[in-house]
Design a protein around this nucleic acid. Sequence first.
RNA 1: GGUCGGUUGGCCGAGUGGCUAGGCAUCGGUCUGCAAAACCGGGUACGGCGGUUCGAAUCCGCCACCGACCUCCA
Length: 489
Amino acid sequence: MKSALYLYNTLTRKKELFEPLAPPFVGMYVCGPTVYSEAHLGHARPAVTFDVLYRYLMHLGYNVRYVRNITDVGHLENETDDTGEDKISRRARQEHLEPMEIVQKYMNSFHHAMEKLNTLPPSIEPRATGHIIEQQQLTEKLIGEGYAYEVNGSVYFDVEKYDGRHNYGILSGRVLEDMRANSRALEGQDEKRGQFDFALWKKAAPGHIMRWPSKWSDGFPGWHLECSVMSTKYLGETFDIHGGGMDLIFPHHECEIAQSTAAQGHQPVRYWVHNNMVTINGQKMARSLGNFITLEEMFSGSHKLLARAYSPMTIRFFMLQAQYRSTLDFSNEALLAASLGLQKLMNAEKTLAGLIPGGSSTADISGIAAKCHEAMSDDLNTPIAIAHLFDAVRIINLVNDGKEKLSAEDIRSLQELFRIFIHDLFGLRAEESAGNDRLEGVLKLLLDIRQEAKAKKEWAVSDRIRDRLSELGITVKDRKDGYDWEITA
RNA sequence: GGUCGGUUGGCCGAGUGGCUAGGCAUCGGUCUGCAAAACCGGGUACGGCGGUUCGAAUCCGCCACCGACCUCCA
């Protein structure tokens, strides 16, 4: 039933059979957020993608160590020249807070959003500031190996030199020579020897709060360094999976490979896995375009582009309806479609729980589970797996209508299939009810009265309750044996 | 300009050389006091132009358009 997993490896640009270095253990490192602003839609894509990969690997029986970092220092606003300011520092200045207050504030916000999206917490969530010493050690090692040099208290990685012995561009497909030909050197007093060299250690300007002593200067580590250091520390010099958004392929992951390879003599990662980006109404999401939506805005509907609120599970399901390597376009129409589709799936699960076995089955459900697993094993093709689940949904509803029959055994295996896929792998859960108990009690009273009125054929009363509730944004759904209701506005 | 990816029915979104994605919407039906909800069912799309092939949305070429990265981004 459980098939071999194939993953698309950015390094080879092919789907490859996933074979861990040391089964049953799997090491997976995913680039987490730089915590300098609210968690947004773009953060949700890798979080959900790698959450599903994490869940699926565990489902396949692997013992997974999932490391996802928090970048809390070193990520510059503009890396190519020396004017670049650390994102955390900059935000701290803007908000009149300590840098560590900024980090804490937005890290909390990120965790809160991740919890709502029902992503499992990683095994280890290391922070760059907690690994300053290790980053200095790696910097020192790179200097010792001749791949890094110091200028005015800052240390840079020598890309030219590295490319001479290894291959800078192995991941992104870039060729240093072409890059040189296609970009003009920046004017000015750059202290770097080569224009593509990147910082391992930056000397802090006088007013810079985030600074640590080092043999070169009081300063802070470069952005790419933390991932090399922390992945090595917790997963070893070679580990199985490194994930992140496609936008990180260059330069971030390319630089990570360069650093680790220069230090170790061999590459650090066996499978590079990258999720694609999200777009809004067909456009890239960017602050400058005014279509930048945070997750909280998504959940509450408080953004001018949103026609209504979309629940965390709707967002999650929406993401799973696309394969992780495709761009995913957010629009009100698409999100609404996803929320209705999700409802249909969850309703069917409820129906399934109450299904009455009918001797022998007239519907054929064999093969559905295998197809779902096959889809997942084919580079996490969640949309295909979902499509197969909807085949099961149709059968469940037909059985519920008495048009087909399922044996007790088949019902049990469908229940298991739904439990595994909907909950264990897709991480979907029932939405928490937004109201409070007391109001729900009142609502129930009202709807009970309506039921009684209906029983007495007092249509004026029953319709009035229904219509007034509808005006208040509560839709009453009559069922054969009672009623249901839903907050729709 | 360079590198890479994409263009599928009203919308989103899979996919394979010949056979059906799936969801939403729409239409028809069942149910219902009416309606809603729920459920069932119908509709056969693949950017343009050539080529390969018995046969291509799927392979090749050219063109057009879109996007990503190259500069901060998940």
